[in-house]
């Protein structure tokens, strides 16, 4: 018994060491989204390219939707932009933009110069929809399924590697569910 107790501090120390060491490799900025499994919030916003055109949730196409939060003030958005152009060619889902806390002129220039991968980009100057989505920075990308349910929130730039690891499996999963429903 005494011998066991003698080693107790060592055991505790090692256990604490393991826990803290694991903590070193955790990313404190990747927060779980509180909205997974919830329906995409209602909104009514003008689009970036046309202040007169208002879009709502009804304007989102059926099928899988990707909603990408971006801003011209965000360097990582620029990094992922070329990959978004790549993604926009896909027929498996439709890509929407949510321009967050930006200036309309700058946003229009951005799309004109770099190319516009989005079906439309909603202009969220006041951050209303972004707030309802729990967005805290850009870029962030949400996956919304056929039923309008938010399935994923990814914070950070997307590239081919991230896509394969984080998104591709989920898209396949949603497509599977669609098949099961139609059967």
């Amino acid at each position: 018994m005494n011998k066991v107790i003698r080693f107790l501090p060592l055991v505790l120390f090692v256990a604490l060491g393991i826990v803290l060491f694991r903590g070193l490799s955790l990313d404190p900025t990747s927060l779980p989204s509180a909205l997974i499994g919830k329906p995409f919030p209602e909104f009514s916003l003008a689009v970036v390219n046309d202040a007169q055109r208002t879009v709502t949730k009804a304007d989102l196409k059926s099928g899988i939707k990707l909603v990408n939060v971006w801003g011209t003030w965000c360097p990582s958005c620029r990094v992922e932009h070329s990959f978004l152009l790549e993604l926009s060619k896909s027929k498996r889902f439709s890509l929407y933009g949510l321009n967050y806390d930006d200036e309309r002129g700058l946003a229009q220039q951005w799309l004109a110069r770099l190319g516009d991968p989005y079906e439309f980009s909603a202009f969220d100057e006041q951050g209303k929809l972004s707030m309802n989505l729990g967005v805290y920075a850009a870029p962030e990308t949400f996956v919304v399924d056929d039923l309008g349910i938010i399935r994923k929130r990814f914070a950070g730039p997307i590239d081919a590697r991230v896509w394969r690891r984080e998104f591709e499996p989920l898209i396949i999963q949603i497509e599977k569910e669609r098949k099961q429903r139609s059967n």
Binding site: L31, P32, S33, A34, L35, M131, N132, L133, G134, Y136
Partner: peptide
């Protein structure tokens, strides 16, 4: 706030 940003 919690509904949107979680317990965080």
């Amino acid at each position: 706030m919690v509904k949107r940003y979680g317990d965080f």
